[in-house]
Amino acid sequence: MNESSPNLITDELQQLQREGSLAVARLFSSYRDRLERMIRFRMDARLTGRVDADDILQEAYLDIDRRLPGYLSDPTVPVFVWMRKLTLQALIDNHRRHLTAKGRSVKQESKKAEYGGATSVSLAELLIGQLTSPSHAIIKQERRDQVQAALDSMDELDREVLALRHFEQLTNGEVADVLGLKKAAASNRYMRALSRLKQTLDGVISET
């Protein structure tokens, strides 16, 4: 958290210690947008429409509130990272509930649910689909496959780093906390992923 003022963060922790739920409510609402962004990005497309990001946020909030004592007794990560983790957990729980209940293969789902769905597929869809317009359909399948293949070839961690930095708008310090990396390592990962992505996109663009 070199780059996100250390005072702020201990301050948040102190607020939680001092005010409990009151502070949970306040901090959660200040992070709400970011958490919602995370949910939207990581939510399985099949889940949307059935479950609203708001529902998940609410679920997460209750969980966060419930787990506050536990967190305070062992605050290993900054408040935001903690809240994000529980929110992600709520999302994953929802994935499990809704997607595996339909008689689909649990194995198939869990692979995606395991890390909240920042898969190459969701990235590819964003890159190709939403990037240009809401119309995924008209993109040539090959092009999409290509980007996806490129993303697949990336290290999973690199992919995640990109997602965290840009879709969830985490700072480098937060990324490091989320992934359990050192800050320098997170920064390097990010730079590497970025140039990998650049190459990928170049390839796709030149082909068009």
């Binding site: 964003l126 890159l127 939403q130 990109l162 840009h166 879709f167 996109l201």
Partner: peptide
């Protein structure tokens, strides 16, 4: 690299 960042940001 920055063009990719711009892209990512607009996507996000």
């Amino acid at each position: 690299l920055f063009p990719s960042i711009a892209l990512l940001e607009q996507m996000g």
